[in-house]
Write a protein that binds this DNA or RNA. Structure first.
Lengths: 150, 150
DNA sequence: CGTAGAAGTTAGCTCAGGCTACATATCAAT
DNA sequence: ATTGATATGTAGCCTGAGCTAACTTCTACG
């Protein structure tokens, strides 16, 4: 057995907390991702079809209706959406603002991916997962990059 | 908004399945993410310190020890790792190969982010979440982009 | 050598997101 | 108006990842 592990005496505390924080952050981002997906989709349905029905939401997200119900209940709890029993789902002011931010970010991520040579279909598919992990700093950098090459 | 619906049936079933698939894919990617994080970290610990102890893994990932135990049990179940009770965790051949792929991908993602102007700290932090959603096609595009500007 | 403390393990709980099955409400068309 | 097809909603279960508490096993040191 190697004798190295404990002999790291001089300074052995700096790097780890940072990495743990990064992982933790990525983990919680995943939770917000669902919220963002729902809000974005609802906004889209409202914009294109005039209304956002449970069935459509569930189908577009590829989940069962009850799952969509639960998630939307959460959105309502968080003050992002409202719904009338058989009249569809709507967004609150906060929900609309979030949707707008998410949509703008999604667009920028897709454009950035395309700009560096990712095929459009892959860009669209990967963006769905990537966008939720793009911080403000990174998004700003993406914007600048796209701006610069126009 | 959809580029090319797979089947343009007469009346029903428009472009939705595609989007549902994307969401589903992003969802399951999140599950693989954990596996990748663990394997990558174990490889790193083995490379730098010679051994990967439960305690170190848990601390670096920012989770409790029992959580790490559970996750590693899963890795063993999936044939990616082995462990001897008080002797640390090791990677199987498959685990080492996965670790190598993950590491290469992580590096490329960070480099790509930096190349488009993302500050290094943000690049490193965001990559932790982004990398798990980068498909082969996107990764290849990243590589080409980086190659081209060297 | 014997024991204190670190490392590892087990048990059992929570929470969130998913699902199926079943119940109810709406709507559209006859 | 009745009724069958859709759309919603509720109940109850599963799974995975996290945590704490309590127990066991090493190991190192006095």
């Amino acid at each position: 057995m190697e004798s190295s592990p404990s002999t790291e005496s001089p300074s052995e505390m700096p790097a780890e907390p940072t990495q743990a924080e990064r992982f933790g952050k990525a983990r919680s981002a995943q939770s917000a991702a669902l919220t963002e997906d729902y809000v974005e989709l609802i906004a889209d349905l409202l914009a294109t079809g005039g209304e956002a029905r449970l069935v459509d939401i569930a189908r577009r997200l590829g989940v069962s209706h009850p799952t969509a119900v639960k998630s939307i209940r959460r959105l309502k709890r968080e003050g992002l959406a409202t719904s009338l029993p058989y009249r569809g789902v709507f967004l609150t002011q906060a929900g609309r603002e979030l949707a707008e931010r998410v949509r703008a970010r999604h667009r920028i991520v897709v454009e950035l991916l395309c700009a560096v040579g990712v095929p459009p279909e892959a860009a669209e598919a990967d963006a769905e997962g990537i966008e939720h992990h793009v911080s403000k700093a990174t998004l700003d950098a993406f914007s600048r990059f796209l701006m610069g090459r126009r």
